[in-house]
Structure formats: structure tokens, C-alpha cells
């Protein structure tokens, strides 16, 4: 029989019962049967760690993902300017000799609730990706420890949490890391990463006075989803999304300055729907125009 891929060495200290076994007979190293009952949310959103490679070579890089399988009808939150809910909180540590990059969040969906509330959410599956780089003289395998807290909602909301661990072994000298089975999970996540701005033809981003204009001649619908640390989008319910006509689509947005280091910048995802041509995402990070300019 085929041996399990190394990343399958995965154990959930909390919420063991809810975490699906990755493949075959996965050894559970730190399982404690007397563990506290997992929080209610773990039943509806099952988390595990994945990696795109089966080993990591000194000086190399691996993509590690926190992936959730979410019950039909339920959803998790992006770190957006949500009117309610709580973004997934994900902390990850790696041993010395490894450098952990920033979390790459995929673009969420805009979701409008009764009461004109706007949230930015993920349904069915979401994967947060973290690139981890090994130093050239690294001696130990990559043991990743993750702490996860989240709120999962349907009509009602329940909190959940996981402590997860995964090990990516060091490649033997001369051995080239191969793609792991879970590389497909990380690939799916990349479909919701922002694309290159030029890749959407006839689409422009510009300032008109204090308004940020998103215009697409071929777009059927444009959506702007502000990040939580961005300047505040005024009236996201009325202005955050617009459907166009045969002449294209134009979304005009206004912002106010927020506190914090990036409160004077407009940051967020743009979703561009082009009908049969599909859906693209862009990332905007622009300073607010100076008054009177």
C-alpha cells in the first residue's frame, strides 16, 4: 500500500472528533480523549492544515493552508468591514530556521442581510494560505502549530476553535519535494486571489475628486469589498455593488478616514463579473486623495 503523504501527520488537539482524517490511517500523536468538548462551531466548519509539498528542502518554500469545509448554508467571515460577525482569527508558528509570510486571504462574497447589513463571507470551502520559507541551514522538519478561532453562522451563529499541528519533513539531500495531494486545495484557493490589473480588459480604477471610480466597459457587475483596516466605505449597502447595462458598469465609492496605520488608504477586493467571460478579482490599495486636490 502507498504510504501516507507526510503532511498527513496532522493532529487536532481541540476538536479532534470534528477534524476529518486527511487520508488513510493518519497517526494522531497528541490526542487526548479527555479533551474538552469541542465548541459548537467545529461541527459546522471543519478545519485542517494542508501543504502543497510533501517535504521542504533547505532554502525552499512551501505553501501551508488552513482549510475549512463548511456545512451547506453556513458561512465564515473575511477580515472585511463587516456589519456583524467575526473574521477568522488564525495564528501560526513555525520552528527556528523558518520564516512565516503573511496570510493570503481569498476574496470573499458580499452578503446582504435583512436590515441592510453587509458582511463579507465564505461559503462551502475557504483556504487561508501562508508561504513558509526555510533557511539554507535549517536542520529540523517544519512543524506548524496553528491556533484558530472563528464564528460560523447560518441564521444563528456559533463560535468555534481549533489547535492544529502539521509536520512537513525535511527533504533528504538530493531529494526534490513533490506535490502533495492537498496541493489541489491550495490551487482552488488561488482562484480567488487577485489577478493582475491588466488582465481585465477595459477596466479602470481612478479618482474623480473624492470619489473612487471603478469602471468596466465589459463588466456586468462590479463589487467593492473593503478590508477592515481600510478607510471606511460610506454606506456599503447602497454603494458597494452595482449592475451595469450594455454600456458597461461604473461603481462610484466614497470613503472617510479611519483610525489605524492604514486608515487613510482604500484597501479591498474588487470583484468584476463579466458574464460568460467569468469573474475576476483585483486588489486595491490606494491613498485617499488629499482634500482640495
Amino acid at each position: 500500500m502507498h504510504t501516507a503523504v507526510a503532511i498527513g501527520v496532522l493532529s487536532a488537539v481541540i476538536g479532534t472528533a470534528a477534524a476529518p482524517a486527511p487520508s488513510g490511517d493518519s497517526p494522531s500523536t497528541t490526542q487526548s480523549d479527555k479533551a474538552v468538548k469541542p465548541p459548537a462551531g467545529n461541527k459546522h466548519a471543519r478545519a485542517r492544515l494542508v501543504a502543497n509539498l510533501d517535504s521542504i528542502a533547505p532554502g525552499g518554500e512551501v505553501l501551508v493552508g488552513l482549510t475549512f469545509e463548511i456545512d451547506e448554508g453556513w458561512y465564515l467571515y473575511w477580515r472585511g468591514q463587516n456589519d456583524s460577525g467575526m473574521p477568522i482569527d488564525f495564528k501560526l508558528t513555525a520552528p527556528e530556521g523558518y520564516t512565516v509570510g503573511k496570510i493570503i486571504w481569498p476574496a470573499p462574497d458580499r452578503y446582504v442581510l435583512p436590515g441592510d447589513l453587509v458582511d463579507y463571507i465564505y461559503r462551502k470551502e475557504v483556504t487561508l494560505t501562508v508561504p513558509i520559507k526555510a533557511s539554507r541551514d535549517v536542520k529540523v522538519p517544519l512543524t506548524v502549530d496553528a491556533e484558530v478561532e472563528f464564528l460560523v453562522c447560518e441564521e444563528a451563529c456559533v463560535p468555534g476553535s481549533y489547535r492544529l499541528q502539521a509536520v512537513v519533513p525535511l527533504a533528504k539531500p538530493g531529494e526534490v519535494p513533490r506535490y502533495a495531494a492537498d496541493a489541489a486545495v491550495l490551487e482552488r484557493a488561488q482562484k480567488r486571489w487577485p489577478s493582475r490589473p491588466g488582465s481585465i480588459s477595459d477596466f479602470t480604477v481612478s479618482w474623480m475628486g473624492e470619489e473612487l471610480l471603478l469602471e468596466g466597459r465589459l463588466s456586468e457587475k462590479i463589487t467593492f469589498m473593503p478590508e477592515q483596516d481600510s478607510a471606511t466605505l460610506i454606506d456599503s449597502f447602497r454603494t458597494g455593488e452595482v449592475k451595469g447595462d450594455a454600456n458597461g458598469t461604473r461603481l462610484a465609492l466614497r470613503f472617510t478616514r479611519a483610525e489605524g496605520p492604514t486608515g487613510d488608504r482604500v484597501r479591498g477586493f474588487v470583484r468584476v463579473d463579466e458574464g460568460q467571460r467569468g469573474v475576476s478579482y483585483l486588489w486595491i490599495d490606494e491613498p485617499l486623495p488629499k482634500k482640495g486636490s
Partner: peptide
């Protein structure tokens, strides 16, 4: 109007980390 398409390329990288 100021066009922002060019700066957006750098931002994309930052966004993707």
C-alpha cells in the same frame, strides 16, 4: 482623473503577500 492601473500591479503583489 488620475489613472491607477500601473500602481495597482505593485499592490497586487503586496496583497498576495
Amino acid at each position: 482623473k488620475r489613472n491607477l492601473l500601473i500602481t495597482a500591479a505593485a499592490l497586487l503583489l503586496a496583497a498576495a503577500g
